[in-house]
């Protein structure tokens, strides 16, 4: 081995090793990205093409009016997220963000459970005008258009 590396073309050997490792890292990354990417869903996506239970996804939509129910343990809440076409029940344990209120947008990170409930590990709500989850900002635009379309 030492003799082989000491040969005239050491630079070439090193280059090849580095390239092989980097391409390997790239392929590994590509494979893992396909498997580990957490896709963004709205309730109608879940209704039409439900993701497999347990897979990490993100769910975005409006918290339906009158749907937030606090459980007896005081820290778990159940609520319903909808997008005007479909609804998904969501369960979350934790301290909710400040602007998490009924009738407002939310993005939940978590996964579907076999019974069709979305179990959220984390809730992202609008923090203020300057900082809101990207999906929410786009969603509000789309909804504004819908409202305009309905009233016309």
């Amino acid at each position: 081995m030492a003799a082989a590396v000491k040969a005239k073309h050491q630079r070439l050997v090193l280059l090849v090793i580095a390239l092989v490792v980097l391409i390997g890292a790239g392929l590994l990354a590509a494979w893992a990205l396909r498997n580990q990417a957490s896709y963004f869903y709205v309730p109608s996506d879940i209704a039409s093409d439900p993701p497999e239970a347990g897979r990490a996804i993100r769910l975005g939509g409006m918290v339906q009016e009158g749907s937030i129910q606090r459980q007896a343990d005081g820290v778990t809440i159940d609520f319903v997220v909808g997008d005007g076409k479909a609804v998904v029940p969501v369960r979350f344990s934790g301290i909710t963000p400040d602007l998490f209120v009924e009738g407002s947008g939310v993005v939940a990170e978590g996964h579907m459970m076999p019974d069709g409930t979305f179990l959220a590990d984390n809730l992202l709500a609008k923090h203020d005008e300057n900082y809101m989850p990207r999906e929410l900002a786009d969603m509000s635009d789309a909804q504004a258009k819908e409202v305009v379309a309905e009233t016309e």
């Binding site: 790239g26 580990q36 990417a37 957490s38 896709y39 990170e109 999906e135």
Partner: peptide, 21 residues
């Protein structure tokens, strides 16, 4: 790659996020 991937897929209309897993 993990940082840029969501930006690339978003350009094609699919929203993903890449995290600790």
């Amino acid at each position: 790659l993990g940082t840029l991937y969501p930006l690339v897929t978003e350009a094609f209309g699919t929203r993903v996020s890449i995290g600790p897993p």
